[in-house]
Simulated scan of single mutants.
Amino acid sequence: MPDDYAPAAGEALEEARKLLAAGRPFHAHEVLEARWKTGPAEERELWQGLAQICVGLTHIQRGNLAGAAALLTRGSARLGAYGSTRPYGLDLRALAVEADAITAVLDEGNADAGSAVSAILARLTPGE
């Protein structure tokens, strides 16, 4: 990412979705991190939580299950702090629950990066 990349919220979400769909969660993290660093202060927890979940997915791809569980848990906690609000149409509660479910599977010693990325991507899509 260029140092001066400052995506708008919608742009960051759209690009992150495309990158996740392509199996590139680390790159999705980079986009979300850019938004976290350049967006409004009151949204930092949102963008940081989303970025941490994407880094967790990256750790699954790389076989670092402990690191994945740690980042997914941190990201889920940040999103959980939003309660039932739906910024940008995102169901953050469902996204946090999905991250926690992936962590539970990892705790059992199982890891399927493709399934994990698909599950998060499905929840990163705005609901009705």
Rank of each mutant, 00 (worst) to 15 (best):
G39M: 10
R35G: 04
H59N: 12
L65K: 14
V31A: 07
L50V: 05
T38C: 06
G56D: 10
I60S: 06
A51P: 10
I60V: 15
L46Q: 09
T58Y: 15
W47P: 03
I60Q: 12
I53Q: 01
Q48S: 11
L57W: 08
G56I: 03
K37G: 01
G56C: 07
T58F: 13
E45L: 13
E45N: 11
E43D: 15
W47N: 02
R62Q: 14
L50W: 04
R44Q: 15
E30T: 04
K37F: 00
L32W: 06
V31Q: 05
Q48T: 02
I53E: 07
A41P: 14
E30V: 00
V31R: 07
G39F: 10
G63W: 11
W36K: 11
H59K: 14
P40M: 08
E33A: 03
G39C: 08
I60E: 15
G49W: 05
R62L: 15
Q52K: 12
E42K: 14
A34E: 08
A51C: 01
W47R: 08
V55D: 08
L32G: 09
G39I: 11
K37R: 15
R62E: 13
Q48K: 15
Q52H: 12
P40L: 14
R35I: 03
L46P: 07
G56Q: 10
G49I: 03
E42P: 00
I53P: 04
I60R: 11
V55R: 02
C54E: 03
N64T: 07
E43H: 08
R62K: 13
T38K: 13
E33S: 04
